[in-house]
Each structure stands twice: as C-alpha cells, then as structure tokens.
Design a binder for these strands. Structure first.
Lengths: 138, 138
DNA sequence: TCCTACGATGGACCAAATCCAAGTCAATAC
DNA sequence: GTATTGACTTGGATTTGGTCCATCGTAGGA
C-alpha cells in the first residue's frame, strides 16, 4: 500500500491525477530518484504530465516534509520519500548506488561546544562513502 | 602567507597569472566559495581571466586533492581549500554561512555491520545544520 | 633566446531548474 | 447534479551552473 499517498490524503492534500502519479512513483524504501527520473516514470503512467508539474509537486512534498531533497556530487538533486524515519545515506563512489542506513548514537554529541560557533544545531546529516560489493570486486 | 600557493609550487604546478589569482582567492580558513564567486574575486584582480579558466583550475585543484568540492542544497557547488586538515561542515539554514568544524570520535563506528550492505566504506561526511547566532535572534 | 607543450580564451553549447500567462479541474456550496 | 472558484497544470521561454572546443598565448626548459 502507498503510505505516502495515505499520509498526504489525511493531510488534506488536494489530489490530482498528476500528484497521485508523482507520489506513487516516489513511494518505497531506498528510493532516491532525480527529478528527471521521476518525470520519466510518471510519464510512463500518465503521458501528458509536464515537467513543471513534477518540479512543483516535488517542491511541495519537500515543504510538507514528506520528501527529503538530497544534494549529491552529480548535478541533479535526488528525492528521498523516506522522510518519516530519520536515516543517513551510504553511497557507492563507483556506481552511485544509494542505501538508507540507520547509525547508532548521537553524532551531535561528538561536536564540542567550542566548535559550535554559537549555532543552535537542529539536524545532523551523515553520508558514508565507499564501494558497493559489485564495484569493489574489480 | 599563502599555504596553498606554496604547496602547489612545491608540487611543480605550472604557475600562471590566472592560476595564482585563483589560488590566492581560495586560500584561507572557512572559505567556501562558489565557482562564480571565485570568478568575481579573481576578475577583480585580473580582469581578463575567463570563466573557463576558473572552472579548469578549480577542477584541477580538486583532482590534486588541494581543494574539496562541496555539494550543497543550493544549485552551485562550493570549493573548500582546507583539504589538508580533515573537517566537517556546520551550516546555517538561515543565511547559508558555513564553518569548518572538527568533531571528536569516529562516526564510522556508529554504523553497525548489518547496515553496511557489504560496502567497503572509505570516508564519512557529516553536515551539522542549525541557526547561526545572527539568524537565531529573530 | 628560442621552442613547444601546456594553459588560457570566449563563444557556443548543454542540462537542471524556474518562470509565466493561459487553460483546466477538484472540491465545496447550492 | 450544476455552478463556482481558487488551486493546479501546461509547455514554451528563460535563467543558471557548468562544459566543450578550436585557436591563441606563454611558462619554463634547452
């Protein structure tokens, strides 16, 4: 079932064919699509959907906090629908594969007060870089 | 003195007026400029420098490992010359200010083997998000 | 000082994302 | 069921960040 779609409906999100398709395409675990990939998959289900709508909808889902925007070293941002459960990312430097991971402990504890420059810190984002099994066995 | 410039000279980097200006502009602590900002500052010192040269030079400094490319939530990448000392970033979600920070401990230890998906992890990147003193006092 | 391979140039080009004015439609009210 | 309307969608133009390439210039070695 579509958790994301359910949550959106419950929040009174105005439902259109386009928005439904975008939400369906994004739903799931370990999903980290670029806007263009979302557009491609959405177009497969609803050929007349436009690029602007995909960007609008993604932007809105980010504002609603249902989707996380992930900056990568590639040019295009990626969109991660797994926003309801805090997690970090494990990225293969070979092929770019991304997995959601859940480290133990509180990374904030590692930052000494002297290093906080008076900031009020609200979030910590960690990315683990390495080689996936496929890319490691060269 | 310019540490960066010194290091580059020592490594036999072919020195031109343009490359020197780019390196000078980047040198320092807590420097995280976009390519366009580098171009603007370089142009102030050497008006005839071209955009392509700035991009070429930045790309080369990254390959040499003297400068780190930082992906941000903004569209433009930022360039961080503080590559010789491992560090992480503290970013103000209000104004975008960035500080270099040095957390204690090994964040890799927090990732249980079961969560590594067989990856060989080589690097961990942490970004702390929050409000700087100026932005917090709204 | 001369040579030459490496670097710089700028203008064309590309990709990701945004903007906008006009058309469409979901949800509410009747 | 119909009318209404404000929110959503469209596609084409535009902006922005970055790359490419043929040609020109020059740092540094002989």
């Amino acid at each position: 079932m579509s958790d994301l779609l359910d949550r959106l409906r419950r929040r009174g999100w105005r439902m259109t064919a386009q928005r439904r398709v975008v939400a369906e395409v994004l739903d799931g675990e370990h999903v980290h699509l670029t806007a263009d990939e979302v557009l491609a998959r959405a177009t497969a289900r609803l050929p007349e959907i436009s690029r602007a709508t995909v960007y609008n909808t993604l932007g809105e889902l980010v504002l609603l906090g249902e989707v996380i925007e992930v900056a990568t070293n590639d040019r295009a941002k990626r969109y991660d629908p797994n926003a309801h459960r805090p997690h970090q990312h494990l990225v293969c430097s070979g092929c770019g594969a991304i997995r959601d991971v859940h480290p133990d402990g509180d990374p904030l504890a590692d930052l000494p007060p002297a290093e906080r420059y008076g900031f009020i810190i609200s979030e910590v984002e960690t990315t683990y870089w390495g080689l996936c099994p496929d890319c490691a066995r060269t």
